[in-house]
Computed example of a mutant assay.
Amino acid sequence: MIPVNTSIVSGVALSEINGEIKMLLMKRVKGGFWCHVAGTIKDGETGINAIVREFQEETQIEVENLYNAQFLEQFYEPSANVIELIPVFVVMCPPEQAVVLNEEHTDYKWCSLEEALELAPFPNQHAVFKHVWSYFVEKKANALYRVEVR
């Protein structure tokens, strides 16, 4: 039997950078790969609380415009023998959003979809980025996906 872990959230930040919509990718210290924001839900937190906190901790982005991306990342983690099931959020940032990384990352880049697909190594990341691009960049974000930040 393989257990399912549902204690992680992830999020993709979007901002207009130099006149074009871009998504934020960061280079992780652990593993050295490019990724979006993610982290573990702490005791007493909702998924919404956790993603707002993770954005603050990892990037110092203050989340105001939060959306449920209507997408679940899912993959098998062999080292833990667990299936990860991770709700994805989208953070709509103001133009030219500043980023201040914490110690978990060494670099960041605002990317087009093509750049993100080139940098990110995992097929599941590609699926997340394509979904977010389709439903939040190519189309206007559906108001029904909006999540109230408390």
Results as ranks from 00 to 15, higher is better:
62 E>I: 06
59 T>S: 09
145 Y>N: 04
2 I>S: 12
124 N>P: 10
34 W>D: 04
40 T>L: 09
65 N>E: 15
119 L>Y: 11
106 T>F: 03
65 N>D: 10
20 E>R: 14
45 E>V: 11
104 E>Y: 14
65 N>T: 11
95 P>N: 05
51 I>Q: 05
143 A>I: 11
4 V>H: 04
40 T>R: 13
131 H>W: 14
48 I>R: 11
139 K>I: 01
119 L>W: 05
38 A>Q: 10
30 K>R: 15
99 V>M: 05
94 P>S: 09
138 E>F: 00
128 V>C: 03
25 L>N: 05
70 Q>K: 10
118 E>F: 07
70 Q>W: 11
22 K>G: 03
121 P>M: 00
102 N>S: 08
114 E>K: 09
114 E>M: 01
110 W>D: 12
116 A>R: 03
77 E>L: 15
44 G>Y: 09
148 E>T: 12
66 L>I: 07
39 G>I: 07
84 E>A: 09
79 S>E: 14
48 I>T: 15
139 K>F: 08
133 W>C: 06
29 V>Q: 08
94 P>E: 13
22 K>E: 12
115 E>M: 07
119 L>F: 11
127 A>E: 15
128 V>Q: 07
3 P>M: 02
42 K>F: 09
75 F>C: 04
41 I>E: 03
66 L>R: 03
42 K>R: 15
5 N>E: 02
128 V>H: 03
69 A>V: 03
45 E>R: 09
28 R>L: 02
28 R>Y: 06
54 E>A: 04
60 Q>I: 00
104 E>D: 13
67 Y>P: 00
49 N>M: 14
105 H>M: 13
10 S>W: 07
107 D>N: 06
60 Q>S: 15
138 E>C: 07
50 A>K: 05
149 V>C: 02
53 R>E: 11
65 N>Q: 12
145 Y>D: 11
87 P>D: 05
140 K>H: 08
12 V>G: 12
57 E>Y: 01
53 R>I: 09
125 Q>P: 06
82 V>D: 02
139 K>Q: 14
94 P>Q: 14
77 E>T: 13
68 N>L: 01
87 P>L: 01
21 I>P: 05
99 V>K: 10
136 F>L: 03
124 N>A: 08
135 Y>M: 09
21 I>R: 14
74 Q>V: 12
8 I>N: 12
125 Q>K: 13
97 Q>H: 00
43 D>S: 13
32 G>F: 06
96 E>D: 10
123 P>Y: 08
43 D>I: 07
52 V>P: 04
107 D>Q: 09
149 V>Q: 09
48 I>M: 08
103 E>R: 14
89 F>W: 04
150 R>A: 14
141 A>K: 00
43 D>T: 13
50 A>I: 02
93 C>M: 11
102 N>F: 04
98 A>Q: 14
7 S>K: 12
98 A>I: 08
3 P>F: 00
136 F>I: 03
57 E>C: 05
46 T>G: 08
95 P>A: 05
53 R>S: 06
98 A>N: 10
79 S>N: 14
86 I>E: 13
